[in-house]
């Protein structure tokens, strides 16, 4: 007996597979609808609500939110004390991002070009391990490390390099009585906490640059430095941009680190936290929250214009 040209179905799985084969769009719709609902309604919806709130204002006498369109709340952002918060946050986020990029590059480059097998596993473990422990524990640990009575002061005193720390702390505007109560301390903790978010995308983009491309550059007469500038950096740029989106926006939104380590000066995250909490000024909190979004959009537009995504 010869086998039939069409095999008999084996129940529901076969019928479902057949249905999806006949209507490929149906499967797509079924797969995409739940995440789309999640993103569309819950995420974009709350973002829209946030945006809406920022165009309301609070009644100065009663403290009640008046649901009328106004730009008064945005105007309030430009008051000296609020502008201070925004500028301080942007400067901190920019400094943290640049420091992360500078520190991450050699590590990512080593991992992408040289680490093989076991060393690669060690690299991933080393980068990810800090992410597994609680963020609060790490921040408090840093507070102790950086404190006046902390291990860092002890170690520099013991090696006779205490002048380094006192030198740093005497910088006007950045210094303070100890590292854990200065902007430098805040900066160090931010850099430590967000560094993995810069290393991983950078490493991924460097990994996609084939060795032959670096060899081609040397073959055509380029020095190492020229290869770095004209081939490696442009090709790594999408990764650097992706990483900087993380470090920049995470720093701008964080409200815990500046509370624990640093001066008591406020950052955007803390301002949002206080405005919507203690002050009960939801519109101003919303307007503050819009600032990082606007900055990120401008940043991405500039990056795109500079050709950062050309190699994608």
């Amino acid at each position: 007996m010869t086998a039939p040209a069409i095999l008999p179905g084996r129940g529901l799985p076969d019928r479902l597979t057949g249905l999806f084969w006949r209507r490929p769009n149906l499967l797509l719709v079924l797969l995409i609808t739940p995440p789309l609902l999640w993103l569309g309604v819950i995420y974009l919806g709350s973002l829209a609500a946030l945006l809406l709130q920022s165009f309301y204002a609070i009644d100065e006498f009663s403290g009640v939110v008046k649901e009328e369109f106004t730009l008064k709340t945005y105007a309030e952002l430009f008051r000296a004390q609020n502008l201070d918060i925004i500028l301080r946050t942007i400067l901190m986020a920019a400094a943290v991002t640049i420091a992360c990029a500078v520190l991450a590059f050699p590590i990512a480059y080593y991992a992408a070009r040289y680490a093989k097998g076991r060393w690669k596993a060690a690299f991933y473990l080393g980068v990810m391990l800090p992410l597994w422990s609680s963020y609060l524990v790490k921040v408090y640990a840093w507070k102790l490390i950086l404190a006046k009575e902390g291990i860092l002061t002890w170690a520099t005193d013991a090696t006779g390099t205490g002048f380094l720390i006192s030198g740093l702390l005497s910088i006007p505007g950045l210094g303070g009585s100890s590292l854990s109560t200065s902007y430098i301390g805040t900066f160090l903790v931010f850099v430590y906490v967000w560094l993995p978010y810069m290393i991983l995308p950078m490493q991924a983009s460097l990994e996609r640059v084939p060795t032959s491309m670096l060899e081609a550059s040397a073959d055509l007469g380029a020095t190492r430095r020229q290869t770095l500038r004209t081939v490696i950096l442009p090709l790594a740029l999408p990764g650097v941009i992706a990483g900087s989106i993380f470090t920049f926006s995470l720093t701008m939104g964080d409200y815990i680190i500046p509370q624990i380590v640093g001066t008591s000066a406020r950052f955007i995250g803390l301002a949002v936290y206080q405005q919507q909490g203690t002050a009960g000024n939801i519109p101003l909190a919303a307007a503050f929250a819009v600032v990082p979004i606007v900055i990120m959009v401008i940043y991405l537009m500039l990056a795109k214009r500079a050709g950062a995504f050309d190699a994608l």
Partner: peptide, 20 residues
């Protein structure tokens, strides 16, 4: 003599053109 100082050039198997 390192590669960049040799008056020799290579056509690579995967061409290795710079995509950017």
């Amino acid at each position: 003599t390192p590669p960049h100082l040799r008056n020799v050039n290579t056509v690579f198997q995967d061409y290795a053109l710079f995509p950017h």
